[in-house]
C-alpha cells in the first residue's frame, strides 16, 4: 500500500532528489508522481493544480511545504532551506542575483527571508571585490582570499588515509568496471560499502585533484535506487559515472 502519509512524503522527496531540486511546480509534481501515489491521493493525471495542492497538503510534514507565487503553486522545502542550499552551493550571491532566480516565492518574500536569515545569524553579508554585498551561510567557511585554495567540504584526512582511500577507490573502479572507462557511481558505492559521507568525500576529493572526472550521462534508463546511489556535486548536478584520467 502506498497511502501512508510517509509514503507520499517519501515519494515527493524522491522526486525532488531525482531532479536535483528543492522544489517542483505542482504540474511537474503531478507528472512525476507514480500512478500508485496519484491513486492514493485520488488524483488523475489531468487533475488541476488546485486539486493537487489540496490532496498533498495533509501529507507534507515538517520538511515539505506548499508555496504560492502569484497564480503558480509549488511543493518543496521551506524557503529558508532553499536559500541556504543555494548559498551553500554558490556562496557570495548578491541579493539581486538571488531575487532574479526562479524561486517559488515572490521578490518581497525572498528579501524578507534573507533579512530574517541575517537577523537570526543564519546568513551573513560581506562585500566582494566589486563592492557588491554578497551573501553567505553563516556556518560555511569564510570566503577564500584571492589565490587561496578552495576550502574542502569534507572532514580533513591525513595523507596516509587519502592515499589508502584512493587505492581502494581505484581497485573498486577496476573491479566494477572490468575494463570499461565509464564506471557507474552507484555500482562503485555498493561495491565499496562505505558510509555515504565517506564515499562522497573521497569522490569529491579525487575529482578536485583531477584524478577522476565525474560524468553526467543520461539517467533516464536508471531506476530510483541507482539515482539515489549516484552523486550530486557541489552545483547540484547529478553525476552517474566516473572516468579515471590518464596522467598528463
Amino acid at each position: 500500500m502506498t497511502d501512508a502519509p510517509s509514503d507520499i512524503r517519501d515519494a515527493l522527496l524522491t522526486a525532488l532528489q531525482r531532479v536535483g531540486k528543492d522544489f517542483l511546480s505542482l504540474t511537474e509534481t503531478r507528472t512525476r508522481l507514480s500512478p500508485d501515489i496519484l491513486s492514493a491521493l485520488n488524483l488523475s493525471r489531468g487533475a488541476s493544480t488546485g486539486e493537487v495542492a489540496d490532496a498533498l497538503s495533509p501529507h507534507l510534514g515538517p520538511d515539505l511545504v506548499l508555496h504560492r507565487k502569484g497564480r503558480a503553486g509549488y511543493v518543496g522545502r521551506s524557503l529558508d532551506v532553499i536559500l541556504t542550499n543555494i548559498l551553500e552551493r554558490k556562496p557570495g550571491k548578491s541579493i539581486k542575483a538571488l531575487v532574479a532566480m526562479k524561486l517559488p516565492a515572490d521578490k518581497a518574500a525572498v528579501v524578507a527571508a534573507v533579512n530574517e536569515g541575517l537577523r537570526s545569524g543564519r546568513f551573513r553579508c560581506a562585500f566582494n571585490v566589486h563592492y557588491t554585498p554578497s551573501l553567505f551561510v553563516a556556518d560555511a567557511p569564510p570566503p577564500a582570499e584571492p589565490g587561496a585554495p578552495r576550502p574542502a567540504r569534507e572532514a580533513p584526512v591525513g595523507p596516509a588515509d587519502a592515499a589508502a582511500d584512493r587505492q581502494a577507490f581505484r581497485a573498486a573502479y577496476e573491479a566494477v568496471g572490468g575494463g570499461r572507462a565509464f564506471v557507474s557511481i552507484c555500482r562503485l558505492r555498493r561495491h565499496l560499502g562505505w558510509p555515504r559521507n565517506r564515499f562522497d568525500a573521497v569522490l569529491s576529493r579525487l575529482s578536485r585533484d583531477l584524478v577522476i572526472q565525474l560524468q553526467g550521462g543520461d539517467p533516464s534508463a536508471m531506476d530510483e535506487a541507482d539515482i539515489r546511489d549516484s552523486f550530486i556535486d557541489d552545483r547540484g548536478r547529478l553525476r552517474i559515472a566516473v572516468t579515471w584520467r590518464k596522467p598528463s
Partner: peptide, 27 residues
Amino acid sequence: DALRSAFSGGMESPREVVIQANRMLQE
C-alpha cells in the same frame, strides 16, 4: 581568483565552463 575558485572543483566540460562563466558575467 574568483574564476579559479569557480573551476577548482574538478574537470568541467567546456559547455559547463561557458555556462558558469555566463552566470558570473551576469552578476
